Amino acid sequence: EDEVKKIVKRLIENGVDDEQIKEIVKRQGVDERIVDKVLKELK
């Protein structure tokens, strides 16, 4: 989960929008619920 957080944070800093972040992270095989949780925490 910490790995996911790092990735998502980097994507947000690069101006990637939420939908794209979800797609990218899902392609890495991460559960969507984890992605949603991380996005909420970082906003």
Results as ranks from 00 to 15, higher is better:
K9Y: 09
K6L: 13
R27P: 02
I12S: 05
E32I: 12
I21S: 00
L11D: 00
D2Q: 10
E19C: 05
V25Q: 03
V35G: 01
I34M: 12
E1K: 07
V4P: 01
E1V: 12
Q28W: 15
E13K: 11
D2W: 09
I24K: 03
R10H: 14
E3P: 04
I12G: 02
K26C: 09
E3S: 09
L39E: 00
V35W: 02
K26E: 05
V25K: 00
V16Y: 15
R10Y: 15
R33A: 14
E32G: 11
V35N: 00
N14M: 15
D18Y: 13
V8P: 00
I12P: 00
E41P: 01
K43R: 15
V30Y: 15
D17W: 06
K43T: 07
E23S: 09
R33W: 15
V4L: 12
D31K: 04
E32P: 14
K26F: 06
K6M: 13
N14W: 13
V16C: 08
L42P: 01
I7G: 02
I12K: 12
N14V: 09
V16P: 00
D18Q: 10
E23W: 10
V30T: 04
K5E: 05
N14S: 14
K6I: 11
E23M: 12
K37V: 05
E1C: 06
R27Q: 13
E1I: 14
E41S: 07
Q28I: 15
I7C: 06
K40I: 09
D18M: 14
V25F: 15
I24S: 03
D36N: 11
E1R: 07
R33F: 13
V8Q: 00
V8K: 00
K6F: 09
K5V: 10
I12D: 01
G15W: 03
K22D: 01
K26S: 11
K40E: 11
K40T: 09
I24C: 04
K40V: 07
V38Q: 02
I12A: 06
D2G: 08
Q28H: 13
E23A: 13
D17T: 14
Q28V: 08
R33V: 10
I12L: 15
I7K: 05
Q28L: 15
Q28P: 02
V25S: 03
V8N: 00
I24Y: 10
D36Y: 06
L39P: 00
E23G: 05
V38R: 00
V8C: 05
V4F: 04
D18K: 09
D18T: 12
G29S: 03
K22R: 14
